[in-house]
Amino acid sequence: MLKFIITRIISVIPILFLVSILVFLMVHFIPGDPVINMLGMEAQPEAIEATRERLGLNKPLHIQYTSFLINILKGDLGTSIRTKKPVIQEIKDKYRYSLILAIGGTLVASVLGVLMGIVSAIKQNKFWDNFLMVISLLSVSTPSFFLALILILIFSLFLGWFPSIGVYSWRHYVLPIFALGTQSIGLIARMTRSAMLDTLNQDYITTAKAKGAPWFQVVFSHALRNAMIPVLTILGLRFGGLLAGSALIEMVFAIPGIGRLMIDAVLTRDYPVIQATVLFISVTFVMINLIVDILYSIVDPRVKC
């Protein structure tokens, strides 16, 4: 198992390396001169030269990349063109909001999704199964930003239960987390359902039933434990999607998270911020998947390289 964990960790290194190259090259992929893109057509030639010099864009590509990488490892992600603040500072201030949303969304999705999946599997092809599968179909088809607006309309504007903008208390997080997590509920419900159906047909379940084990023990302790493995993988993969997708939710609920930072940066062509946020989100995503993989190699000894 230790061997699996080490190989898995090593396998992540080239991916992170390639991700950093792509993020570095982003500025160079832009059609036209990156500095003019950043400063605008009417910028003074001196200002253009100064920015080129400051960003090191006049050096050869491999030297630019090396210093880009060294700076990242030192925790220096450059300076925002718009706010003139260090990008790392901006991200530090905003990252936790997006992290709370993504973790909350993943929790909502896993609890509700797994519960729905279990009920569906137990009641296979009966009313509850069909009903829950319609709900999960709706959940995967509804865009999160549309759901967010409906939630605001019902729970903020009409019922007044939850605030619709900002992040001042836990009540502010309820609607955004729900809006973000819902799309994954359906996915996890379907995954749990089919994994549960697979395990419920196994011999050891029949044995457990034959020995007279109570049904909730059969379902929760025998079947669910084994059905959780594919579900865990999906959860790891969804987490990254939620982290990136929180940009939409942050826009609707006016939450100052990293997603909004990224969108604002794209709209104002603030390339150091774009690069840093894209890098940050993808590295988090790769690391979470690494952790999930390692976790279930511990949970399930059958998983090997």
């Binding site: 990136a244 939409l248 794209v266 390339y271 774009i274 894209v278 993808s282 995503f285």
Partner: peptide, 13 residues
Amino acid sequence: AFPGLLLAIAIVA
């Protein structure tokens, strides 16, 4: 490694 919407946003950027 660029999850979900992130890749699309990066390309549009």
